[in-house]
Simulated assay, not measured.
Amino acid sequence: MLKTRVITALVGFIIAIVCITFGGVVFDALITLLALIGWREFTLLAKSRRVRMPLLWGYIYILAVMTSLSLGYYNIILAIGLAGVFCLYMMMTFGERYKLHNVGYSIFGVIYVLLGMGALLLIRQDSLYSLLPMPYERDNWGVVTIWLLLFTTWASDTFAYFAGRAFGKNKIVPTISPNKTLEGFIGGFIGAIATGIVYAFIVGTPMYMGAFFGIIIGVLAPLGDLFESKMKRICDVKDSGVLLPGHGGVLDRFDSLLFAAPAVLAYLTLL
Rank of each mutant, 00 (worst) to 15 (best):
G196Y: 03
G196T: 10
I197V: 15
I197F: 00
I197T: 10
V198F: 05
V198S: 12
V198I: 15
Y199R: 11
Y199P: 11
A200W: 00
A200G: 04
F201C: 06
F201H: 13
I202R: 04
I202A: 05
V203P: 04
V203A: 01
G204W: 00
T205S: 00
T205M: 07
T205L: 03
M207F: 02
Y208D: 12
Y208Q: 09
Y208P: 00
Y208G: 07
Y208A: 11
M209P: 00
M209L: 15
G210A: 07
G210Q: 07
G210N: 06
A211D: 05
A211H: 01
A211V: 10
A211K: 02
F212T: 14
F212H: 06
F213R: 07
F213N: 13
F213A: 14
F213H: 12
G214W: 08
G214Y: 05
G214D: 11
G214I: 11
I215G: 04
I215H: 03
I216V: 14
I217Y: 06
I217D: 11
I217G: 09
G218D: 11
G218L: 12
V219A: 11
V219T: 15
V219S: 06
V219W: 01
L220R: 08
A221T: 14
A221R: 03
A221I: 09
A221G: 15
P222L: 14
P222T: 15
P222W: 09
P222M: 14
L223A: 14
L223G: 09
L223Y: 04
L223T: 14
G224V: 12
G224A: 11
G224T: 12
G224D: 09
G224L: 08
D225T: 08
D225R: 05
D225C: 11
D225V: 10
L226Y: 02
L226D: 11
F227A: 15
E228V: 10
E228T: 08
S229Q: 09
S229P: 07
S229R: 07
S229V: 12
S229Y: 02
K230H: 07
M231A: 08
M231N: 02
M231W: 01
K232N: 08
R233A: 05
R233P: 01
R233N: 03
R233V: 13
I234F: 01
I234T: 08
I234V: 13
I234S: 01
C235I: 06
D236K: 14
D236G: 01
V237H: 01
V237T: 12
V237K: 03
V237D: 03
K238C: 10
D239S: 09
S240Y: 02
S240T: 15
S240M: 13
G241F: 01
G241H: 08
V242R: 14
V242W: 02
L243Q: 05
L243T: 03
L243N: 03
L244K: 06
L244A: 08
L244Q: 08
L244F: 15
L244R: 10
L244P: 06
P245T: 14
P245G: 10
P245S: 12
P245C: 11
G246A: 07
G246F: 01
G246S: 07
G246K: 05
G246E: 07
H247N: 11
H247D: 12
H247L: 13
G248A: 10
G248K: 08
G249D: 09
G249M: 10
V250C: 04
V250Q: 04
